[in-house]
Design a protein around this nucleic acid. Structure first.
Length: 485
RNA sequence: CGGGACGUAGCUCAGCUUGGUAGAGCGCUUGCUUUGGGAGCAAGAAGUCGCAGGUUCAAAUCCUGUCGUCCCGACCA
C-alpha cells in the first residue's frame, strides 16, 4: 500500500526527472532488450521483437502497396567495392567493421560487414539493367547492419541494428525524385498513423546529407529533452551511384544512359522514438498498432472463486480468433502488482475481470494513455460488447497518444528572429527552432560549434524574413534547428 | 576518442578510508493464508566481490592493466 516506490522490484526512475535513466531502465525492465555479451549490441527480446514485427508488418504492407518487392543481399562487402563511390567511402569509413580472416587464413581482400548496402545492390543492378524496359527496379531489403559506434544506447544507436533499406533505380531524374518523396511520404504517414509520432519532414542541409546523395530527406521527431530524433531517411542518389557502379541502360532513343537511383531506410531507432515520446513516469505507453499485446486480462480471484480466470481465458480465446493480440495474466501475483507491471510495459488497454464482473456479465476496460482519476480512463462494459468496445478503446488510445505527442511538438516549435535569442534557445534545447537561414555549410558549422545543434529539415522561405538569423547573410530557406540524437 | 563516475547475490546497494574466511532490502524456491492499485507469515537456496596480473603470511579492500555500463563533450545517414 505504500506510495513510495523506492524498493519495488520493477520500479523505474520518473521520466520527468531523468530521461536517460528512465529510458534505459524502461527498455530493460519492460523486457524489450537485454545487453548482449558484445560491446554496444543488444538482444531484442520477444516483447521488443514483437514491436519490431508490428513495425515491419505495417511498413512492409506500405512498400508492397507502392510497388516494391523484398529481396536479400549478402552481409559481407569486398573492400574494392566499398571504395567505388568516393563520398560514400569517406562518409562510412570510420564506422566500418572488417573481416580480415576466414577459415584460419588471412584474406587477400578484406570484407566489410555492411554498414548499408548501396554498393552491393548497385553492383547487382548494373548486371540486371540493360534496357529502359528493365526499369524501374523497386526493391526493399529487411536486414541487419553494423556500424562501429563509439557511444551506444538501446535502439537509438547500437553497433548492430535491424532496419529496412529500399533501393530503386529509374530511367529519369524526375522519376527518381518522385520515388524519394513518395517514400518520405510513406514514412511520414507511418509515423503519424502507426507510431503515433508527429514529425517534421523535408530536405536536409548539405552537411547533413547522406554520403553520396544528391538530396536527403528525413522525418524528425522531437524528444522530451528538446533533442530531435531522425526517424527515417529517403535519399535521391542522382547518378552518383549509377556512374560508380555502371548502372547503365539503353533508352528508348537508343542512347546509353546512367540510371537514377534512390535509397530509403527506417531502423529500429524508430522504436526508440516511440518509447521516448510516448512513455510517462509509470513506464511505456505503446501505440496500439505497434503493441505486441493490445490488451491484457487481469483476472481477480477471491477465495475459492476462480471463475474469473476461466472467463478471462474464454474471452481471450474469442478475441484471438478475431485476430486481436491479447494475453491473460493468470500468474499468482496480486492484481495491483499486475496493474503496475503491465502499465510499465505499456500495454494499451487492461481488462479487469473479477467475481463481481463474472456475476454481472461485464468486464472493466482501463486505458493506459490516461492518468489515474481521469474520467474516461476506466469503464465497465458488457462482455457481449467486449470486442467492439475494445477495438474502440484501442482506437481512442492510438489517437490520444498522437494528440498528446502532437501537442508536445507544437508547444516546442519556436519561431525566432533574434540572433542572440536563437543561440540561447539552441543551447537550452528548447525544441525545434524555426529560423530563416542562409543554407551555408560554414554557418551550420558555426551553429554546431556554438551550441551542438544542427539544422534538421529545411523548407522554402515564407513571410518577409530575408536575413539568416544565425549569421546575418541573406536567407535562402527556413530551417528547423535542434540538437539531435 | 577526451573529461568524470561506477562495476560486490537476479535487482538496488552497504562493506573499501584503517587488508584478516561475504552483508542488507527486494526478488527467487517451498508451504499456508491472501488477491478490485505493487499482500502476510514461516522455512530455504543463491555471490571464485567484472576480468587478468601485481604487492602481501593474507586482497572485495592497496597498485597496474583490461573489459563493460552511465553522465558530459567530440564524432555519427
Amino acid at each position: 500500500m505504500s506510495e513510495a516506490p523506492v524498493a519495488l522490484p520493477k520500479s523505474i526512475p520518473p521520466k520527468s526527472e531523468d530521461l536517460s535513466a528512465w529510458y534505459t531502465a524502461v527498455c530493460l525492465k519492460a523486457e524489450l532488450i537485454s545487453y548482449a555479451p558484445v560491446r554496444g549490441c543488444v538482444v531484442l527480446r520477444p516483447y521488443g521483437y514483437g514491436l519490431w514485427e508490428n513495425l515491419q508488418r505495417e511498413l512492409d504492407a506500405r512498400f508492397k502497396a507502392t510497388g516494391h518487392e523484398n529481396a536479400y543481399f549478402p552481409l559481407l562487402i569486398p573492400e574494392s567495392l566499398l571504395t567505388k563511390e568516393a563520398e560514400h567511402v569517406e562518409g562510412f569509413a570510420p564506422e566500418v567493421a572488417w573481416v580480415t580472416h576466414g577459415g584460419g587464413e588471412k584474406l587477400t581482400e578484406r570484407l566489410a560487414i555492411r554498414p548499408t548496402s548501396e554498393v552491393t545492390i548497385g553492383t547487382m543492378y548494373s548486371q540486371w539493367v540493360e534496357s529502359y524496359r528493365d526499369l524501374p527496379i523497386l526493391i526493399n531489403q529487411w536486414a541487419n547492419v553494423v556500424r562501429w559506434e563509439k557511444a551506444t544506447r538501446p535502439f537509438l544507436r547500437t553497433m548492430e541494428f535491424l532496419w529496412q533499406e529500399g533501393h530503386t533505380a529509374h530511367a529519369g531524374a524526375e522519376e527518381a525524385r518522385e520515388e524519394t518523396l513518395k517514400m518520405l511520404g510513406v514514412y511520414e504517414e507511418f509515423a503519424r498513423n502507426v507510431a503515433a509520432l508527429p514529425v517534421l519532414s523535408g530536405p536536409k542541409s548539405a552537411s547533413e546529407r547522406f554520403p553520396g546523395a544528391v538530396e536527403t530527406y528525413s522525418i524528425e521527431a522531437l524528444m522530451p529533452d528538446g533533442k530531435a530524433l531522425q526517424s527515417g531517411t529517403s535519399h535521391d542518389l542522382g547518378q552518383n551511384f549509377s556512374r560508380a557502379f555502371d548502372i547503365a541502360f539503353t533508352d528508348i532513343d537508343g542512347a546509353v544512359k546512367f540510371a537514377y537511383t534512390t535509397s530509403w531506410g527506417v531502423s529500429w531507432r524508430m522504436l526508440g522514438a516511440v518509447i521516448m515520446a510516448h512513455g510517462d513516469d509509470r513506464g511505456l505507453r505503446i501505440p496500439p498498432k505497434l503493441a505486441p499485446i493490445e490488451a491484457v486480462f487481469i483476472p481477480i480471484v477471491r477465495g475459492e472463486d476462480r471463475r474469473a480466470i476461466d472467463r478471462a481465458h474464454e474471452l481471450a480465446a474469442t478475441l484471438k480468433r478475431s485476430g486481436m493480440r491479447v494475453r491473460v495474466d493468470d500468474r499468482d501475483q496480486s492484481p495491483g502488482w499486475k496493474y503496475a507491471e503491465w502499465e510499465m510495459r505499456g500495454v494499451p488497454v487492461r481488462i479487469e475481470i473479477g467475481p463481481r464482473d463474472v456475476d454481472a456479465g461485464s468486464v472493466v476496460l482501463v486505458r493506459r494513455d490516461l492518468e489515474k482519476g481521469m474520467p474516461d480512463r476506466s469503464r465497465s462494459i458488457a462482455v457481449d460488447a467486449l470486442e467492439e468496445e475494445l477495438r474502440r478503446s484501442l482506437e481512442l488510445v492510438q489517437e490520444s497518444l498522437y494528440a498528446q505527442a502532437k501537442a508536445a511538438l507544437d508547444a516546442r516549435i519556436v519561431r525566432i528572429v533574434d540572433r542572440d535569442a536563437f543561440f540561447t534557445a539552441a543551447r537550452d534545447r528548447v525544441g525545434m527552432i524555426d529560423i530563416a537561414w542562409c543554407d551555408r555549410p560554414e554557418c551550420e558549422a558555426h551553429i554546431k560549434a556554438e551550441c551542438s545543434a544542427t539544422t534538421r529539415v529545411l523548407r522554402p522561405l515564407d513571410g518577409d524574413e530575408k536575413i539568416c538569423v544565425a549569421c546575418g547573410e541573406p536567407a535562402k530557406v527556413r530551417a528547423y534547428v535542434a540538437a539531435s540524437y
